[in-house]
Amino acid sequence: MSSRDEILARLRAATADVTTRPGERGPVPIIAATSESAQATLTLFVETVTDYRASVVRCRPEQVGAEVAAALVRGRAHTVLVPSGLDPAWVERARDAGLRVRPDEDDEGRPLSADQLDGIDAVVTAARVAVATTGTIVLDHAPDQGRRALTLVPDHHVCVVRAEQVVHDVPDAVALLDPARPLTWISGPSATSDIELNRVEGVHGPRTLDVVVVD
């Protein structure tokens, strides 16, 4: 008997006493905090992101480019990676400020290697959804966010979130996501609690996270 068949046979024997059918429990209960208002949700999101020692700014749509440039300058970035689907207006000011803005491709048009990504200071992306109660940004790696490595290897991530993308609690976000896509949930900069259980920011992922909330 193959390992597969043997394990399945063991499990059928082990659960022979079970009288319910799969799915009989009914729909998964949605247990979530409720929002008082869209503004309250947004305010909470800013607070929870700030708690992780990420920086958050709120701005109007026409100010996004200036805020992105300011964050990159604060982080002393020289080269900035931009996914193909990003709104070009968001990095115009950074380009004007003399930063080298480059797409995810080398001279021959191939995606950058991990080593090449390691030589880039920062990345600017959009997001798919954000969660107020937990201060989380979720990427689904659509063209305005790029493949997963882009938001991982560079040390500084500037993420632009539109106000209407901020949902109140975790179940609201799960309901919006497409499981067929790779998903990355980001709550603050890279951190560890492994040394005496104190949270220390900055291990392998981006050590600086800037969130620009647009409303």
């Binding site: 929870t48 708690d51 992780y52 995606p111 969660v131 109660t133 937990t134 201060g135 989380t136 790696h141 493949r147 997963r148 490595a149 975790v170 499981p179 067929a180 896509r181 790779p182 998903l183 990355t184 949930w185 980001i186 709550s187 603050g188 900069p189 890279s190 951190a191 609690s193 949270r199 992922g205």
Partner: peptide, 21 residues
Amino acid sequence: STGERMNPYTSMWTGVTPSDG
């Protein structure tokens, strides 16, 4: 687990994603 509202990173993947990972 860590007593945080959310851990810094959660990754979800479903099989192979062409040209990503």
